[in-house]
Nucleic acid binder design. Structure first.
Length: 883
DNA sequence: GGAGCTCTTGTTTTT
DNA sequence: CAAGAGCTCC
């Protein structure tokens, strides 16, 4: 392929820009930011200021190299990351510029591109295509099971959907899947059959799934040279974040756009590749230097986030990986407190430990927002939530079931989808399912009829209405005998359903007709309002008195308030924007957009990627939970290991790894061994305690390290193996949980004090501090303000960095920090005697004493108006001045 | 067609 | 333990 783009020589950065950047970036970061044309690989370790570098690089390209911002394409994996990047670049270039940069997720960008290009693929799709989520996909697939006469009990639809997804990740078409499937393997054969049917069903519905978004765009780029040319010419500077997580389709997409001009910057950390299950392949980042042989490689190896202790622990886990890019993280931060390893009895004990410890942390002046609880699977959040509610600690749960995944919400949205995409058969069925009297039999008949007569479902409905109008000008009164169906066949042909069904379909049609009219005349909120009233949606929910109709109606009202934001334009445009958002934006993304409260954050380890928190709890540190049993079965422990690495490196100062001997799982008690990750922690970094916070003695620690929960023998002898797990003899159970309603007095002292002064002052610089020599030539970081044995400032006072927003309008960890990595060290906030301050949980108070803390830390005593005197660290406490 | 019941079954992470 | 599928009865 010919190169069509002649790179202009990169102008040398002007001295003053360089000078400015030097105050913001370390030498390696600087090299990455100012790199000119040509491929650039940035290997960015955890906490090394990666997002900062991308943001500065984009700003540099625009401001210093005078590249028009619309020539820049920046791709991330999550909306959260995209928003964060937008935010950062905005600070550097201003909104006018950033708006022109094309930034988004792979899926979001492809959706956008496809809206204008997809019709080139022929009549298969049109620009109004619907994006199907997992739930939609499964519904379609199950229907294919039925139609293909396959028994969903013999082959799990979920497994088939997974297989189809993986085929799509590898760009395998249904035909390829069929020819590749082994004739004797019934599963593969079934997958191939179902894949074909599924794909046809999606096409017929003018619908695409997540995989299609990428793959169809790729088809356009690879099969239409002029399209590829257009995109390659327009986006002359391409940046891809989290490159270790690209799958084959995404990789080829990037190559299709940037392969000629080769102005491609990829950023990633192979040690943080945790999406293999989604088709991502670390190989692509490992091979980048071969793919783009002229590339420059920059390593960001200084970690600005975590204490040495945390970093060393992370590296101990990382060391178990079989292959990775050579990369040695180091930090100039202080050694910090030991990691707390916790051996709890069961999952309730585990949760109670966490909560008690949070209480204690709060007592030392840490804010709730500085604390995160991470777990492997969403199901683990339940116990934690219960205990948090019981103790009345403020928290937010991130992830789990998406708002837009709730059944009632999907039902409402199905109506809306029908207004945009009249082919959307699944939406027709879903919305129809909420209509009293309309059941599967009728809908099946109708869909079949519409298909046979080549009508999109909505057009089919409307045509019933027309035929009705033509033949029976007077509206039918329900109950009267209608015209014989033969009468209609003159217009419609024979209709295979009865009179009653016909009335129901007509009512459906009239509703849709009214909404379609509303699309032109109303705003989206008004349209939704009309929709809910006209369909009697509230009554539908409440009459379905099975469980919680009220709650569901509240969700629908919540949807109403979300939609309000789309009210400025006409309903048609607003609706398209809204639906795109609903399809591609996760709950987590929307929740975080709101004002930040001072709350503890609960989420999965996966969701936590990219975030950071001063204090992190990782729970469920047991074999089978983390590492997950399925990963153990499949033998891909490496990915679990990287996930553990990701989790540990979220922590800035305090890290707790909590596991328990037994837990109830799927309604049964199970006993797991301690996680191998616990056992691999270097012993000298960990302080081991039991679920009540009492130190484990050396013997028990040894036991633990040899792979068994300490002190297990005695309780096992008395417990589960003993014959009588008879009801009424609870003492026989292996471990008695602390009574669930045992009150914990506020501020009650707990036995462990991980934040106490012990073990913080360490003599010489530890070995991790040296930059690895091979890193990048002479650019050994030196003269870092953080150098030397002095502890780093803890919570940086972000408000002191010019151009940065105040911490409290930032996401929990994400934006709150990461902005602090570069020298010079941001000064701690200072307070004067008698100054009035505000704390989110303690209220307002007056500074009554100031004294030095550890290192550069400053402790102040504040007399709060309501709760008395508290001693707080200025670096840690979420204090604000009251003017 | 649909309500209400029992039984089975699944068990990770997310765009 | 929860959700979904399948069954029965109206």
């Amino acid at each position: 392929m010919e190169r069509t783009y002649n790179p202009t020589p990169t102008p040398a950065p002007s001295p003053d820009i360089r000078q400015f950047l030097a105050t913001q970036l370390n030498p390696n970061q600087m090299e990455a930011v100012t790199h000119g044309d040509g491929p650039l690989l940035i290997l960015a370790g955890a906490g090394s200021g990666k997002t900062r570098v991308i943001a500065y690089r984009i700003a540099y390209i625009i401001r210093e190299r005078q590249i028009p911002p619309w020539q820049i394409l920046a791709v991330t994996f999550t909306n959260k990351a995209a928003r964060e990047l937008t935010h950062r670049v905005t600070e550097l270039t201003g909104e006018d510029q950033v708006r022109q940069v094309r930034m988004g997720t792979f899926h979001g960008l492809c959706a956008r591109f496809l809206r204008s290009e997809i019709e080139l693929l022929g009549r298969r799709y049109d620009r109004n295509f619907t994006i199907y989520d997992t739930d939609d996909q499964l519904r379609v697939l199950k229907r294919q099971f039925a139609e293909a006469g396959l028994n969903p009990k013999l082959v799990s639809p979920n497994a088939v959907l997974g297989a189809i997804g993986r085929l799509k990740d590898r760009l395998a078409s249904p035909a390829q899947a069929a020819s590749a499937s082994e004739a004797h393997n019934p599963f593969e054969t079934a997958v191939a059959t179902l894949y074909l049917r599924y794909q046809n069903a999606l096409e017929a519905a003018n619908a695409v799934d997540f995989g299609d978004l990428i793959n169809l765009m790729l088809q356009l780029l690879e099969n239409f040279p002029d399209v590829r040319q257009r995109y390659a010419n327009r986006y002359r500077h391409v940046l891809v974040d989290e490159y270790q997580d690209v799958n084959e389709a995404q990789y080829r997409l990037v190559k299709a756009i940037a392969g000629d001009h080769r102005n491609l910057t990829v950023v990633g950390d192979d040690s943080q590749a945790i999406y293999g299950w989604r088709g991502a392949d670390v190989r692509y980042i490992l091979q980048f230097e071969q793919d783009f042989s002229e590339c420059t490689t920059v390593r960001l190896e200084q970690n600005y986030r975590s204490t040495q202790t945390i970093l060393v622990a992370a590296q101990a886990i990382e060391a178990g990986l079989t292959k990775r890019h050579a990369k040695e993280l180091w930090t100039a931060n202080r050694k910090g407190d030991p990691i707390t390893g916790v051996v709890a009895g069961n999952e309730t004990d585990e949760a109670q430990f966490v909560i008690r410890e949070i209480d204690r942390l709060i007592g030392t002046g840490i804010g709730y927002r500085q604390i995160a609880i991470l777990y492997r699977t969403n199901a683990q959040s339940r116990v934690l939530e219960e205990q948090l509610v019981r103790r009345r600690l403020p928290f937010q749960l991130v992830g789990g079931t998406r708002f837009y995944d709730r059944r009632e919400i999907k039902e409402v949205i199905a109506y809306l989808h029908l207004l945009v995409n009249p082919h959307d058969t699944d939406a027709f069925r879903r919305a129809g399912g909420t209509r009293k009297g309309l059941g599967n039999t009728t809908m099946d008949k109708f869909v079949d009829w519409a298909t046979e007569t080549s009508r999109p479902v909505v057009d089919g409905l409307i045509s019933l209405l027309r035929a009705e109008g033509a033949e029976r000008p007077a509206p039918l009164i329900i109950g009267t005998v209608g015209p014989d169906l033969d009468e209609q066949s003159a217009v419609m042909g024979p209709l295979p359903w009865n009179r009653r069904a016909h009335e129901l379909l007509l009512a459906y049609a009239r509703d849709l007709d009214a909404f379609i009219t509303g699309l032109q005349t109303l705003s989206l909120p008004d349209l939704l309002d009309l929709l809910l009233k006209r369909t009697g949606f509230r009554e539908y929910l409440l009459e379905h008195r099975d469980d919680n109709g009220e709650e569901r109606w509240e969700n629908v009202q919540e949807l109403m308030s979300v939609v309000t934001e789309y009210g400025v334009s006409g309903a048609d445009e607003g609706l398209r924007l809204f639906l795109e958002n609903a399809a591609l934006v996760s709950d987590a993304d929307t929740i975080r957009a709101g004002p930040r409260d001072d709350v503890v954050t609960l989420m999965t380890l996966h969701t936590a990627k990219g975030l950071e928190f001063p204090a992190v709890f990782i729970v469920g540190m047991e074999e089978g939970i983390f590492p997950h049993s399925r990963a153990l079965e499949d033998g891909n422990i490496d990915e679990e290991r990287r996930l553990c690495y990701v989790g540990i490196t979220r922590a800035m100062q305090a890290l707790y790894l909590v596991g328990c001997r037994s837990r109830s799982f799927r309604g049964m008690f199970v006993e797991n061994d301690p996680s191998r990750f616990l056992r691999e922690l270097p012993g000298e970094l960990v302080r081991w305690v039991d679920g009540n916070g009492f130190r484990l003695d050396a013997a028990r620690v040894m036991e633990m390290q040899s792979g068994a929960w300490p002190g297990h023998g005695a309780s096992r002898a008395a417990g589960s193996w003993g014959g009588g797990t008879a009801i009424g003899s609870p003492s026989n159970l292996p471990h008695r949980p602390v009574g669930p309603d045992r009150p914990l007095p506020p501020g009650a002292p707990t036995p462990i004090r991980p934040w106490s002064g012990q073990a913080t002052r360490i003599g010489g610089p530890p070995s991790t501090r040296q930059a690895s020599p091979g890193a990048s030539g002479p650019g050994v970081p030196n003269i870092r303000p953080f150098n030397g044995p002095s502890p780093t400032p803890l919570r940086p006072g972000l408000e002191n960095i010019p151009g940065l927003r105040r911490a409290n309008d930032l996401t929990p960890g994400a934006r709150q920090t990461q902005t602090s990595p570069a020298p010079p060290a941001p000064p701690l906030p200072t307070y004067g005697l008698d100054e009035r301050v505000r704390h989110p949980s303690f209220g307002d108070g007056t500074v009554i004493q100031i004294e030095p803390g550890r290192g550069t830390e400053v402790m102040i005593q504040v007399k709060f108006d309501t709760i008395g005197v508290k001693k707080l660290s200025t670096g840690l406490a979420p204090l604000t001045r009251i003017p």
